[in-house]
Write a protein that binds this DNA or RNA. Structure first.
Lengths: 122, 122
DNA sequence: GTGACATTTCGATGGTTGTAGAAATGAGGG
DNA sequence: CCCTCATTTCTACAACCATCGAAATGTCAC
């Protein structure tokens, strides 16, 4: 996920442009690669589990989080590579107009070396 | 605009999470600091001028673009500093969970950030 | 002043979205 | 099999949003 289309960016932006979802996503990012069961996310954020379920589905469809069954629970975790791709997309827009302004950031994110996930992808 | 609240980020994300607005914003970014009159933006993107006017107002309220009268026209231009602040906000979320992952990006966009890794840089 | 032009505001409409109760699906444990 | 727990789907509803025609506002030239 180092290249990204406008449609994908649109889906990610729409997924993050909602208070409950942004909060859930930030929680999952803060929780790290181990993630958190859907129920815990709902409880911490403070919404019913079915409501959170739809939000998590939207985040997952946008590619921003991943899900994995673990016993009775479904554990969600943030996909930082997707986040990186979104940031890259936004910064590349900057570059197009003014190469000197955000060029360093784009160059840093693009090689996938300095910011890449160290462990295995799911 | 180097610090940014969650509400502001939410407004920016919502402003960009819409096809017509994202297209208009990218157009303004590509156009550079001189910007473009509202009518030109509407014509190029291909929507009526009143529709584009509401979209430009939303982008401006989010802080992503600026407006300036020039004769009969109102010229809009992208605010790259706001864009940078949004990217910084997103990347700082990354840092919170995994400091080693996107720390260099945060440090580059805002050297005073708590995410920076001072001992290994430079 | 009048007229032409650029843009915004008003108003209405159709579509989308966030929310949550109720029911259904799935996964252990006995 | 039966029960319980975790999560998702189904369904409905209220609120919001994108769109655009029509009218209003503001600006310049004459």
């Amino acid at each position: 996920m180092t290249e990204i289309t406008t449609d994908q960016s649109l889906a990610m932006l729409a997924a993050l442009a909602q208070e409950t979802r942004l909060e859930a996503f930030r929680l999952l990012v803060a929780e790290g690669p181990d993630g958190l069961p859907a129920g815990d996310v709902a409880r911490i954020v403070g919404v019913p589990s079915n409501t959170m379920s739809t939000h998590l589905a939207i985040l997952e469809r946008a590619g921003l989080i991943a899900s994995q069954r673990s016993g009775r629970s479904i554990v969600y975790s943030a996909r930082l590579d997707a986040m990186k791709a979104l940031v890259l997309y936004l910064v590349q827009d900057c570059c197009k107009g003014q190469p000197g302004l955000c060029g360093e950031v784009a160059a840093m994110l693009d090689p996938a070396s300095s910011c890449a996930r160290p462990e295995t992808q799911h």
